[in-house]
Amino acid sequence: MELLIRPIRPTELPLLEDFLYEALWQPDPAQRLPREVVRTPALRPYAEAFGSRAGDCCLVAEVGGEVVGAAWCRMIHGFGWIGEPIPELAVALYPSFRGRGFGTRLLRALLEELSGRGFRAVSLSVQRDNPAAKLYLRLGFRTVAEHDGEWVMRCDLGDRTGAE
C-alpha cells in the first residue's frame, strides 16, 4: 500500500470535519461522542473556513486514490495555544489506517513544510493517555503545560533532521 502525502485540494476541505472528529481521542468505542461535537464553539475554529487565514496549512495522506488522513495547522487560540505566532496543529487518520507509520510520515511532512514556511514552532494538545502522545514525543514535541490530564506540547522547528 503506497502512501502519497500532498497538499489538500480545495474540493477536499470538507474532509477536515471528518478528520477533526477522528482527532478527538475517544478511548471507549461504545461511548463515542456525536459527530456534531466538531461544530461546537470550542472545536469549530479548527476546520471552519480553512484556507482563509494566513498560516493555514494542510497535508493529506492518500492511499489508493483515497484521502485517509490529514495533518493541518492554523493560527487559533485552541486547546493547544501557546502564543503568537505559533500555529496549532491537528492530525488524524481513519482508524483502519492507523498503526502503519502513516501518521508519523504525515506529521513529519507537515513539520518540514511549516519549517520551510519560516515557522519557528508549532503546538498541539493531547490527552496524556492517548497513544498518539508517544508519537509526538518521538518527533520532538515537549510538554509545556498540563491541565486535567491534557498536555499542551510544543515542537521547535529549527532543524528537523534530528527528529525521529
Rank of each mutant, 00 (worst) to 15 (best):
L106Y: 05
G83S: 15
F79W: 09
A90W: 00
L15R: 06
T11G: 13
A109K: 04
A133P: 04
L137S: 10
Y136Q: 11
R9A: 15
L20G: 00
P7W: 01
S115Q: 08
L139S: 09
R138C: 09
R100A: 10
L157F: 08
L33M: 06
L16H: 01
L13D: 02
A30R: 12
L13P: 03
V37A: 05
R32P: 01
R44N: 04
D129Q: 11
F79Y: 11
N130C: 07
E164K: 13
E113T: 01
R74D: 00
R44L: 15
V144S: 10
I82L: 15
L114C: 01
C57I: 02
L106H: 05
A121C: 11
T143I: 15
P7N: 04
R128P: 05
A90P: 00
V60I: 13
L33P: 02
L135E: 04
R105I: 01
L93C: 10
V67A: 14
V37C: 03
P95N: 09
R9Y: 09
L107W: 03
I76K: 07
G55M: 06
T11Y: 10
F50T: 05
A23V: 01
A23H: 02
A54G: 07
F79E: 15
S52H: 08
L111H: 00
A132T: 02
T11M: 14
F97S: 12
T40R: 15
P29D: 05
E164Y: 10
G78H: 09
D159G: 01
R105M: 04
W81E: 05
G80T: 05
K134I: 02
L43C: 06
G65S: 12
P27T: 03
D56V: 09
I76T: 07
S96G: 10
L16A: 04
G51E: 07
L139T: 05
E146R: 14
A90Y: 00
Y21H: 04
D18R: 12
R120Y: 03
